[in-house]
Amino acid sequence: MLVLTRKPGERILIGDDIVITVLDARRDGVRLGIEAPKGVKIQRDEVLRAVTEANVAAAEADPDAEARIKALLGLTADDA
């Protein structure tokens, strides 16, 4: 990992077409501006992790789901 110290207004260049500009630096955080081609994905790590965890949880089988759906539809165990 490369660690840099930058002041507001200073930039970091990544390759030929990605520019990161320090917009503001405060005690509680740093505001960054990122210029990149449209095809480059820029995502916040914590948001990506939360979405991945939610997808995994949604994909897990609920053992009672079938029984609850049948009950909501008014079906008995012999129906369907």
Rank of each mutant, 00 (worst) to 15 (best):
D24Q: 10
L48R: 11
V51N: 04
V51T: 08
R27T: 08
I18R: 00
E53Y: 05
I12E: 04
D62H: 03
V3C: 14
R27F: 10
A80C: 14
D16G: 15
T76E: 15
A58W: 02
R49E: 05
I12T: 09
D16W: 09
K41I: 03
A77I: 08
G9I: 08
A57I: 06
I18F: 06
A54S: 01
G15P: 07
K41T: 05
L73E: 13
I20V: 15
D17L: 15
E53C: 05
E53H: 00
I14C: 03
G74Y: 06
K7F: 03
A36L: 03
N55A: 11
I18V: 15
V30Q: 13
K41S: 07
L13G: 07
P63I: 04
D78N: 07
D45L: 11
D79H: 15
P8F: 09
A77M: 11
V51C: 02
Q43L: 15
D45F: 06
M1I: 12
K41H: 01
R31T: 10
R27I: 04
I34R: 00
V40C: 00
G9N: 05
V19W: 08
R6W: 04
D62F: 01
L32Y: 05
E66F: 08
E46K: 01
V47L: 12
G15F: 03
G74R: 13
D24I: 05
E53M: 10
T76S: 15
E46H: 06
D24V: 05
A54D: 03
D78R: 11
A71N: 11
V40I: 15
L32F: 03
L75I: 15
V51H: 09
A36P: 03
E53F: 05
M1F: 12
R27P: 02
G74M: 14
V47D: 08
G33S: 10
I42Q: 08
G15H: 14
N55Q: 11
K38T: 13
A50F: 03
R49H: 08
V47K: 03
R11Y: 10
L32P: 00
R6C: 12
A57W: 01
R49Y: 02
D79K: 15
E53K: 01
A50L: 01
I12R: 11
A54R: 01
R6Y: 04
A61E: 12
G29A: 04
V30F: 10
A67F: 02
D64K: 15
A67G: 06
D45G: 07
A57L: 11
E66Y: 10
K70D: 04
A65V: 10
A58G: 02
E35S: 07
M1T: 14
L73N: 04
A65C: 07
T52Q: 12
E53W: 07
A61T: 12
A77W: 02
D24K: 06
T5P: 03
E10S: 13
T5D: 08
V22N: 01
E46D: 11
P37V: 07
V3Q: 12
G9C: 06
V40D: 02
G9T: 08
A36F: 10
A59K: 11
P8Y: 09
V30C: 10
L4S: 10
I42W: 06
V56S: 09
V51R: 00
L23A: 13
L73G: 13
A25F: 04
M1G: 15
E10T: 13
